[in-house]
Design a protein around this nucleic acid. Structure first.
Length: 874
RNA sequence: GCCCGGGUGAUGAAAUUGGUAGACAUAGCGGACUUAAAAUCCGCAGCCUUAUGGCGUACGGGUUCGAUUCCCGUCCUGGGCACCA
């Protein structure tokens, strides 16, 4: 055996061994329980960062652990290959997006292999390959025919200078990131997927996902946002016609307090009113300024303008003025809201600002007390719904529920509405006016309308040799792409040039891993094998808690309802979900003359910190001049704050990188990146190597297999088996790898103190080292593969069963309890392990520490927690 | 603005169901080995105080025999907000 730990050598050797034996290949086997371990596939941005290393190491640890537990493990990997960065790179480097993407994939695949992940590369897929996206085009056409895909107008960010649609990320402080022009909202036709048709099931399904974090389920629940309320109309007359203005409210009990109605700037009523009101038209125009991101809309100043149109209160008949409000969202409900300044904070502020009427309170809380607006107590009371109506005509005196029932019934009788369940969830707009995405398989024909591309013409292949300029949609400039014949009438037609949202590709890739080679169907019976009961473990960043995970749940249901899973009932794709905390790092930037930010990687920056270690100034190493510190954020390409693991791997090896990132913190916690401590991880592996080397050099012996031991060795062996139990529990149940590593470190510290060379001690050392190497194998597989081959020549670590704790070794005669007086630590006592509560209490009262503390007093109460402590209350 | 998290020594963290706060590491200090350095090994280490003891898990309050853990409020901080992925 080599005396020195040589990570590079042993890692390459282990990797080529695994490659040769096909250790990571997954083959369907009905006789074995399966374990499908899925990690979120990366966008091939060019390089990995520490967040990826963390994500994929967690997945690899679980995959290897379950394999040792006897499961048939599938751990696949692929590439979320469509997306905006490829187009940006194309503009910058004058390289076609496809070429850039494939080059990145090739490099990143090598990086993954260098980290030693047990991935089944035979199942690799890239979403930009026609063999992949043809199937989502195929399903799209089915959904279109079923009405689950439909076309309507939607709002986008429009850059008037570049004449192009911008993503929210490309709008910075209301301006286009490239042109610097003020961004406007623009209505364009888009295709939508009817996710709202599944809102109820997506919500109810959350309760059947015990393997998901509560936090994620709660976020999805709030996102879907089911609310029960009343949808009703304000009747009015316009241009000689009777019309209705519809609104939705969860507070119909306050309907008698309505003093105005607010509509969105895009509302038809606003447009009608603006026709003969230039001031209003200008205001609506002003509302078009700025982007569509909700965070911006929700934080901007609330503004409004009257339309001059009046509607009738549906119950009182009172005249109510309609206002246009910039805070009313056209995409939610009917794009109009009733306003009750007496009871809604936002309505109150709006009414104050514009001098609108505010009626007296129409509600009071149980007990009769009416409260002033805008106090904390008032807000709490309003939210509680434990209220009854006052000054509300015939509804006065009714509680919240009775009032809503009565009002809804009266509205229904008038034909002006009734109860309605409303969801916050909106249909999913999937059209993108971009090039590097999956073409939407629709043909527009003047006589036949929108015609789905027939199966035999699929896939609609995205041309790969194009020039990207950043202005307009490249496909719309390629007649060779869009000129086509109508599949129905054969007349000349125009192919859709929008592509799909890249979330579509990532909504079903995990199913395609089961059968990536099938060129006749989207999925096949292998899905039933690998996905039965759901994918056993999904690992990925918490930032995907809502969108990706909700869309994937939705698509799985769409595929189920298209009958694609045969007899298999697959309602939910992911049985167990581990949401990894973000690895965050500081961001640095410089602004150019036009105010555009240029992000600088942390590795190029020299930091000066205050005495608390917080950064106070930063300089660019290249020129020594200051850069601006932009705060901590998740590692990303757009903020250029990713830390490339390559330097770490080159210097210390993959095992050290894996050990370090797993030891740094529990997986669900977010982690501020720092490489302080990498040295310690490397030191531990060197120490492990040396300990095994010393043992092996003294000669191998059979592992201890039971029998009598002297007290010291017996205590050590108990620690060994406690550690085995703990590590298995940390991997399998708690998914907390840092404490598993700490427990093994403690065990090795105790091992080093053994100082006993008797025959039983040597057998115990053999038993310990074999167990330690197998316990660490999932985290640091290369070094453990090498060490195990020394401890058990001819055996491969990965093929072994995970060690089992020996119950006999765990048995204890005596245990130590803590003695507390009034909840404060005052001493300890030893009692037989079998002692009952009464015996423990007697022993506690009799012990020296208790006698000293009590000084003759009798405790008022004695609390005994078996196995833990005794608390004397005096 | 709205939804969901987090805050414990100089640092990363541990405390698994309300039961010994700071395990295991990093950085630091001291010692051993060495001509020396590196490597390695051993020891010290929350704060205050004097042995006793007191204080201490962002801050303020509450529940409990007992709170890092549960409840209320405040501050700071991370993620998401539908076209970053």
């Amino acid at each position: 055996m080599q005396e020195k730990y040589q990570p590079r050598e042993i890692e390459l050797a282990a990797q080529s061994l695994w490659k040769k034996t096909g250790a990571a290949r997954a083959v369907e086997d009905a006789d074995k329980p399966k374990y499908y371990c899925l990690s979120m596939f990366p966008y091939p941005s060019g390089k990995f960062h520490m967040g990826h290393v963390r994500n994929y190491t967690i997945g690899d640890v679980l995959s290897r652990f379950y394999k040792m537990r006897g499961f048939n493990v599938l751990q696949p990997m692929g590439w979320d290959a469509f997306g905006m960065p490829a187009e940006n790179a194309a503009i910058q480097n004058k390289t076609p997006p496809a070429q850039w993407t494939y080059a990145n994939i090739a490099y990143m695949k090598e990086q993954l292999d260098r980290l030693g992940f047990a991935l089944d590369w035979e199942r690799e897929l890239a979403t930009c390959a026609p063999e992949y996206y043809r199937w989502e085009q195929w399903l799209f056409t089915r959904l279109f025919e079923k009405g689950l895909v439909y076309k309507r107008y939607g709002t986008v960010n429009w850059d008037p200078v570049d004449q192009t649609v911008l993503a929210n990320e490309q709008v910075i402080d209301g301006r286009g990131w490239r042109s610097g022009a003020l961004v406007e909202k623009r209505e364009i036709p888009m295709y939508y997927m009817k996710i709202t048709a599944y809102a109820e099931e997506l919500l109810a399904g959350l309760d059947r996902l015990p393997g998901w974090p509560e936090q994620v389920k709660l976020m999805q629940k709030n996102w879907i946002g089911k609310s029960e309320g009343v949808r009703f109309a304000f009747p009015y007359e316009l241009d000689g016609r009777a019309e209705k203005l519809w609104v939705f409210t969860t507070r119909a009990d306050t309907i008698m307090g309505v003093t105005f109605v607010a509509v969105a700037a895009e509302h038809p009523l606003a447009a009608r009113a603006a026709k003969d009101n230039p001031g209003l038209a200008a205001f609506i125009e002003e509302c078009k300024q700025g982007g569509v991101a909700e965070a911006d809309l929700a934080t901007m100043e609330k503004k409004g303008m009257p339309t001059g149109i009046f509607v009738a209160h549906p119950l009182s008949g009172e005249k109510i003025e309609v206002w246009v409000g910039n805070y009313v969202l056209m995409g939610y409900g009917d794009g109009a809201v009733m306003a009750v300044p007496a009871h809604d904070e936002r309505d109150f502020a709006f009414a104050k600002k514009y001098g609108l009427p505010i009626v007296q309170s129409v509600g009071a809380r149980s007990g009769g007390e009416e409260l002033a607006f805008s106090t904390d107590a008032w807000q709490e009371w309003y939210a509680s719904k434990e209220t009854y109506c006052v000054a509300s005509g015939k509804y006065t005196g009714l509680g919240y529920k009775d009032a809503v029932d009565a009002i809804a019934a009266d509205l229904a009788a008038l034909g002006l509405g009734g109860k309605k369940v409303q969801f916050r969830l909106r249909d999913w707009g999937i059209s993108r006016q971009r090039y590097w995405g999956c073409p939407i398989p629709i043909i527009h024909c003047e006589s036949c309308g929108d015609v789905p591309v027939p199966d035999e013409q699929l896939p609609v292949v995205l041309p790969e040799d194009v020039t990207i300029t950043g202005a307009g949609s490249p496909l719309a400039k390629l007649p060779g792409f869009y000129e086509c014949a109508c599949p129905k009438c054969g007349g000349s037609a125009r192919r859709e040039t929008d592509t799909m949202d890249t979330f579509v590709e990532s909504s079903w890739y995990f199913l395609r891993y089961c059968c990536p080679d099938n060129d006749r169907a989207m999925v096949d019976e292998r899905v039933a094998y690998w996905c039965r009961g759901g994918i056993d473990q999904y690992v990925g960043g918490i930032e995907h808690a809502i969108l990706h995970l909700l869309y994937s749940r939705f698509w799985t249901k769409l595929m189920r309802d298209a009958g694609l899973f045969g007899g298999e009932r697959l309602d939910e794709p992911f049985a167990n979900l581990l949401t990894q905390g973000m690895v965050i790092a500081p961001t640095f930037y410089r602004e150019d003359a036009e105010g555009k930010k240029h992000w600088i990687n942390p590795s190029e920056v020299e930091l000066s910190c205050d005495e608390r270690g917080r950064p106070v100034a930063a300089r660019l190493r290249a020129d020594g001049h200051a850069v601006t510190i932009g705060g901590m954020e998740k590692m990303s390409k757009s903020k250029n704050n990713g830390v490339d693991p390559q330097a770490l791997i080159d210097q210390y090896g993959a095992d050290t990188a894996r050990l370090f990132i797993m030891f740094a913190s529990p997986p669900e916690q977010s982690l501020e990146w720092s490489d302080a401590g990498v040295e310690g991880a490397y030191r531990f592996l060197r120490r492990l190597w040396r300990i095994v080397f010393e043992h092996v050099s003294a000669g191998l012996v059979p592992a201890f297999a039971g029998g009598g031991l002297p007290a010291g060795l017996k205590a050590f062996r108990r620690q060994l088996h406690q550690t085995i139990g703990k590590v298995a529990d940390d991997y399998g149940r708690r998914r907390q790898f840092n404490t598993a590593i700490a427990a093994v470190m403690e065990l090795l510290n105790a091992y080093a103190r053994l100082g006993d060379d008797s025959a039983p001690a040597r057998a115990l050392r053999q038993e310990t080292l074999e167990a330690v190497v197998l316990m660490l194998y999932p985290i640091v597989p290369h070094v453990c593969e090498a060490l195990y081959a020394e401890l058990r020549p001819g055996q491969a670590a990965g093929g072994q069963a995970f060690p089992k704790a020996d119950a006999d070794a765990l048995a204890q005669d005596e245990i130590e309890l803590v003695l507390q007086v009034n909840g404060k630590l005052r001493g300890s006592l030893r009692v037989p392990a079998t002692a009952d509560k009464a015996a423990i209490e007697a022993a506690a009262l009799a012990c020296d520490a208790a006698q000293r503390q009590l000084q003759g007093r009798t405790p008022r109460k004695v609390i005994v927690v078996p196995g833990r402590l005794v608390n004397l209350v005096v």
